[in-house]
Computed example of a mutant assay.
Amino acid sequence: MVEVGDDAPDFTAPLADGDVSTVTLSDRLDDAPLVLAFFPAAFTSTCTTEMCTFRDRMANFEDIGATVFGISVDTPFALNEFRDQNDLNFPLVSDTNREIVREYGVSMDFEKYGVEEVAKRAVFVVDGSGEVTYAWVSDDPGAEPDYEEVADAAETARA
């Protein structure tokens, strides 16, 4: 699993931003600090609450110059619909091939539902040099991050 002080694993993946484009993490370091908010599945209760909480707190992140990305294994088309239905004001990264969740060490299975390799709920903050400066990973899919702690970590990473 990726830890504080590690170089953030680079990735290129589809980006759901109202359209479908691609994003490469290393190309976005100028927009740092970057907040990578992994979530298991669009349209589920806790994931919707989490992404809507980031939406509602977006001004806090914008004030410190942070860029937020949600990341899940859903398709970019489903993620765009999820963005639309919830008025999300930040882009979502589609990791359908599960490479990002594997690289960050945040993959989990919902065995009782027969679903494999979805994202654990996790948040990483990456600074402008590509270093992970904050990491929070939960094995409880019903847990949510401490949003103030994430904002504080992003502000610290900005310096």
Rank of each mutant, 00 (worst) to 15 (best):
V115L: 06
S45V: 13
V125A: 06
S94H: 07
R83K: 10
M58G: 06
R55A: 10
E81P: 03
P91H: 00
R102M: 07
E103Q: 05
D56M: 13
D74Q: 14
T46L: 09
C47K: 00
E99S: 15
I100Y: 09
T49S: 01
F61K: 15
Y113G: 09
N89R: 00
F90T: 11
N60Q: 15
D63N: 14
E117V: 14
N89H: 02
R55H: 13
D74P: 09
V106Y: 09
N60G: 15
V125N: 13
S107N: 08
N89I: 04
E117K: 05
R102W: 02
G105A: 04
V125C: 08
M58A: 01
I71K: 08
F82N: 13
E81S: 01
E117N: 14
E50I: 05
T53G: 12
A119I: 14
T49W: 02
A78F: 08
R98W: 02
P76A: 01
D56T: 14
M51P: 12
V115W: 08
S72Q: 08
E62R: 10
F69R: 01
M51K: 01
K120A: 08
K112Y: 09
T75W: 11
P76D: 00
N86K: 11
R83I: 10
A66N: 12
A59V: 07
V101Y: 00
F69L: 00
D95R: 11
P76S: 07
R83D: 05
N86W: 06
E99K: 11
E103F: 00
E111Q: 15
I64T: 13
A59K: 12
F69I: 02
T49Q: 08
D87Y: 01
D109F: 11
F124C: 02
S107Q: 10
L88Q: 08
D63V: 11
C47T: 09
D74K: 05
D63S: 15
E81D: 06
T53D: 12
V73F: 10
F110H: 10
I71L: 10
A122Y: 11
E117C: 01
E99H: 12
Y113D: 12
R57E: 11
T53N: 15
N60M: 13
R55K: 13
V115D: 05
E62M: 06
A122L: 04
V93S: 00
R102C: 04
V125E: 09
E117I: 02
V73E: 13
G105K: 04
A119E: 08
L79V: 12
G70K: 04
T53E: 15
A122K: 06
M58S: 09
T46R: 10
A78D: 13
K112W: 04
F69W: 07
E81F: 06
T53R: 07
